[in-house]
């Protein structure tokens, strides 16, 4: 992408540069690296070739989906089941993209396609945190964030696939908790940016989501539960706000 550094005119925020996007991505990299390596190891263990693992990272670019893909291939599941499961697992990104999209309507179609293709839980978390802090999002900043995450993910998956046999169990080092602690920190940062009069409303909403998640876990997979609890939770949020 030659125009990654291009200035976007009046809307451009001085501090929200490509370089700042790269910098804002750094805290999430530990999560990408540990999970990417694990995804690579699991892929090869399931009988995929290293090249297939890298193709998955490049084209699908979704941790949980890549794990499930490997597990289903190992099970010998039919292709239709694998495709449908991948779709459901990643459907939450529809909500994230819809949340991000209104901030980028001034940019070209191709740039918007780029933002969408490279959207992940982590980049969404970082970007929505900036929105909460009332920082205007720019195309350059978003590209810096997205491209750094994407490259790091592909390299991590490749390392896992190629050198998986020599890497000892990452869980022993607590690395699997990197993702959870990152979601926790992103959530706390979101709450921190909310005006104090509204904070009770949000705490109540969070309790609602916890109850909804536990409730839904009786009936549907955790991925569907995330989707349903989020849709219902946002609706409750709008209906109960003053």
């Amino acid at each position: 992408m030659a125009d990654v550094h291009a200035s976007i005119g009046a809307e451009e925020n001085d501090e929200m540069t490509f370089r700042q996007g790269v910098r804002d991505c750094i805290p999430t990299l530990l999560g990408y690296i540990s999970i990417g390596i694990a995804a690579g190891v699991v892929g090869v263990a399931a009988g995929l070739s290293a090249l297939e693992v890298v193709l998955l990272a490049v084209l699908v670019y979704a941790g949980s989906a890549q794990f499930i893909f490997a597990a289903l291939v190992l099970d010998g599941s039919p292709a239709a089941a694998i495709i449908l499961t991948t779709f459901i697992v990643n459907l939450r990104h529809f909500l994230m993209s819809a949340t991000m999209a209104p901030h980028f309507t001034q940019y070209s179609v191709w740039k918007n396609i780029g933002f969408g293709v490279l959207l992940t839980d982590e980049t969404f978390g970082v970007a929505s945190g900036k929105v909460q802090q009332k920082r205007g999002l720019t195309s350059s900043w978003m590209n810096g964030l997205n491209v750094t995450a994407y490259i790091c993910w592909i390299i991590s998956c490749a390392v896992g696939a190629l050198f998986g046999n020599w890497i000892s169990d990452p869980e022993a080092f607590g690395l699997d908790f990197a993702l959870t602690s990152m979601f926790i920190a992103l959530l706390v940062l979101q709450l921190d940016a909310i005006e104090s009069v509204k904070i009770k409303h949000y705490i109540r909403l969070i309790l609602c989501i916890v109850i909804l998640m536990v409730g839904f876990s009786f009936f549907v997979s955790s991925h569907m539960a995330v989707l349903l609890a989020t849709i219902l939770g946002a609706t409750i949020g709008v209906v109960t706000e003053k």
Partner: peptide, 13 residues
């Protein structure tokens, strides 16, 4: 409301 809802749901999951 989506960011807070989805981040909470991901933590709970």
């Amino acid at each position: 409301y989506i960011p807070i809802c989805i981040l909470t749901a991901l933590v709970v999951s």
